[in-house]
């Protein structure tokens, strides 16, 4: 044991610059991995948060609706009553948590509020904005039932699930995290190559010693252990740094900045970060053990 520890120490000091580069490359690549997994967690969290609040909008026909959807023009009170009755019917009420009706005045008020600083607010008139039934479902995934029940019904211009807007945002975030994972995989690959080169150099500089070890009957395990541990130690240092970086990102950027400036969104917290750290360290240990094990193999051939 004493022998193995002193061998690792010697190995690390022998090519300190290579070891530093292994540490840095694993550090950066695993930070990418960590950031990407945090982003995935964030997407998951936002999905549950926003899907929960997403509603289905049943837009009623207005004066300016296209004629193919609304041949009769502005939806009459009878048609609106029919939609309301259908929402309250036994078949649908099981899925509907609640719904409310938004008339032209309310729609106009909301629009003016949302587009307060936009020029379009000046040109819009009340009658251009649809009257809408906003339907909140017990389970947002059941939106299809509402869509299918009301599409094509007289007086209904369009049924729209708000989740379709959210999905666009999530697919952008998802693509970003996939890109981060792609970069991370590439960098992890180069980290593995770097580790095996480092170990190969280390073994080459000790090849005389290795020859003598083989001669006196040291087992392969005994010969390769210091080299494998040398790679593992370097990569583990890198992964611990990466874990620290991930926690710092969560603490100072996400919680310290994002959460302050966007108070209505829930963000990943330190608990999620702490979940990622052991994964990073485990990945580093496995990767470096495999890379250095393969690298040293050549020198073990008897």
């Amino acid at each position: 044991m004493k022998y193995i520890i002193s061998e690792i120490r010697q190995g690390i000091f022998r090519n300190v610059s290579m070891v530093i580069s292994v540490v840095l490359v694993t550090f950066i690549s695993l930070t990418f991995v960590g950031a990407a997994s945090l982003l995935q967690m964030q997407i998951g969290q936002m999905k549950t948060y926003w899907y929960d609040r997403a509603q289905v909008a049943i837009y009623m026909c207005s004066d300016v609706s296209p004629a193919d959807a609304c041949p009769q023009g502005e939806a009459s009170d009878d048609l609106k009553a029919a939609v309301e009755a259908k929402l309250q019917s036994d078949t649908l009420s099981a899925y509907v948590e609640k719904f409310y009706f938004e008339n032209h005045e309310q729609a106009y008020a909301t629009f003016q509020e949302q587009f307060k600083d936009n020029a379009v607010a000046k040109y819009v008139t009340k009658n251009q904005l649809n009257e809408t039934f906003w339907v909140k479902l017990n389970d947002a995934r059941d939106s299809k039932i509402i869509t299918e029940s009301f599409t094509g019904v007289a007086g209904v211009e369009e049924v729209r699930d708000q989740r379709s807007y959210l999905d666009q945002i999530f697919s952008i975030l998802n693509a970003a995290s996939l890109a981060a994972i792609g970069i991370a995989v590439l960098m992890l690959f180069s980290a593995a190559l770097l580790i095996s080169t480092t170990i190969r150099l280390s073994a080459f500089s000790r090849r005389r010693e290795l020859g003598i070890m083989r001669l006196v009957g040291a087992s392969n395990f005994y010969i390769q252990l210091p080299f494998i541990l040398e790679g593992v130690v370097a990569a583990t240092i890198g992964s611990i740094l990466a874990g620290g970086a991930v926690l710092a990102i969560v603490q100072f950027f996400v919680q310290g900045y994002l959460a302050q400036s966007l108070p209505f969104t829930s963000f990943v917290g330190l608990a999620d970060g702490l979940l990622v750290v052991p994964i990073l360290i485990g990945a580093a240990i496995l990767l470096s053990a495999a890379a250095s094990g393969l690298a040293i193999r050549r020198y073990l051939r008897i």
Binding site: R214, L215, V216, G217, A218, S219, N220, R301, I302
Partner: peptide, 14 residues
């Protein structure tokens, strides 16, 4: 088998 070679070598001196 190559994993037995070290054990063989322990039994001789060179």
């Amino acid at each position: 088998p190559s994993r037995r070679i070290p054990y063989f070598r322990r039994r001789l001196g060179v």
